[in-house]
Every structure is written in structure tokens, then in C-alpha cells.
Amino acid sequence: MKILLAEDDEQLASNLVQLLRREAYAVDWVRTGVDAQHLGETGSYDCCVLDLGLPALEGLAVLRAWRANGCEFPVLILTARDAWMDKAEGFQSGADDYLVKPFLPQELILRVRALVRRSRGQAAEVVRCGGLAYYPGSGNFQLSEKPLYLTAFEIRILAKLIQFPEVLVERETLFDCIYEYEAEVPNNSLEVLIGRLRRKIAPVRIVTARGHGYRLTAEAA
């Protein structure tokens, strides 16, 4: 799962990146509105945390441009502007949530999770595939009712696959949503991660469709 973070304050941004990574999100961080607009339109994100006072292009302008160009990912506005009219304008411009600085870290995480969950139409508290259960509210996985301990990358892959159980997820899509922009990724790293995941989630299987992508399935081989 990947998040676009648009925030010009370096200190806050680095804290936010740490916070989100700890929650197993891949984070692309941009400082300016122009960069944010570009990445939002070209990348694949599960959610965007958008500051309003961005240099080069105002946050609200970026948001309107995204919505005008058909970018549908959920956007959480994170800003110092706490006036109700500012909030109303944010929602009118296409935001899905609005959080005022300073905020509690848990609140940001809860809201981001809720946004991601809603954007996928996951109304249920839990998503299952065979014995594997995913709780989008908390971001936890269980296998056969026991907690499953996974690394951040593994969580990103599995959260993406379990959104579409029994359906093929293209390799590019999976790649896009787990690796951060400009991250140095070895060629076979995705395969390595998938291999490790397979061992952890058995008997649930990840089937490779060679040259296309992967499929999470509960069917026995």
C-alpha cells in the first residue's frame, strides 16, 4: 500500500514518513504542489496526505487538478487551517477527509486506514481468503485465527493481493504500490518477497501467472 505525502515542512514530513512506514505503508514524499500533481497523475497511490500551504502550487489547486483529471484516490488534507470555511472548501475541492495540525499520530493512521478501506469499497471489518484474514481497520493479518507477523513489504504485498482474492493482480500494479518512488529495487526483489510470503501464509497460496502477475487463492494446489 502506497501513500503520496505532499508536505513542505521537512521536519514534519520526515516524522510523517517514519510514522507511515512503521504502519507498513510505502511513502512517496514531495515538497511542492507541482511535484505532487505530477506524481498523483502518473503514480498509483492508495491515499494521499496533502498539505494546503505548498510552494509552487497550492494544495487545493493540486486537488482540483487531480479530480478534474479523473484521479480518484482518497485524499486527506493535513493543514494548519482550522476554519470551518476552509474545511468546507477542502471537501468541496474533492478531499475525503480533513485533519488539522497539530494532530495525534494514531488519529492520522486511523483516518488513512479508513480512507483506504472505503476507497476499496471494503465495508466489512475483515477480509478473508481461506484461513487468511485481514483487518483493514487495524492493518493486522491473522492466519487460522492466530496473529501473523509480517515485514512492511510483505504487508504491502499481501494487503494489495487480498483486496482481490482469487483475481489476478498485475505485476506492475503490485510493484508500483509497494516500492517508493526512486527507490532502488533489485530486479528479482518482488519474487524474493513473494517467496517469503508463500511460506508464511501456507496453506493459502500465491499463484504466479508468468509474465502477468500474481493471484491469491485459497484453493488447494
Binding site: 515542512d9 521536519q11 514534519l12 516524522n15 510523517l16 517514519q18 510514522l19 500551504g53 494548519a80 487551517r81 482550522d82 488539522v100 495540525k101 497539530p102 494532530f103 495525534l104 499520530p105
Partner: peptide
């Protein structure tokens, strides 16, 4: 507001971390 709230937000996160 902007100048104070952003570092405050950082501080909250930092304290948490």
C-alpha cells in the same frame, strides 16, 4: 498559525516516536 502548528505537529509525532 501555520508557523506554530506545523512544528507542533512535528513535536507530537516526535514525542510519540
Amino acid at each position: 498559525a501555520h508557523a506554530v502548528k506545523t512544528p507542533l505537529a512535528s513535536l507530537v509525532l516526535q514525542l510519540e516516536q
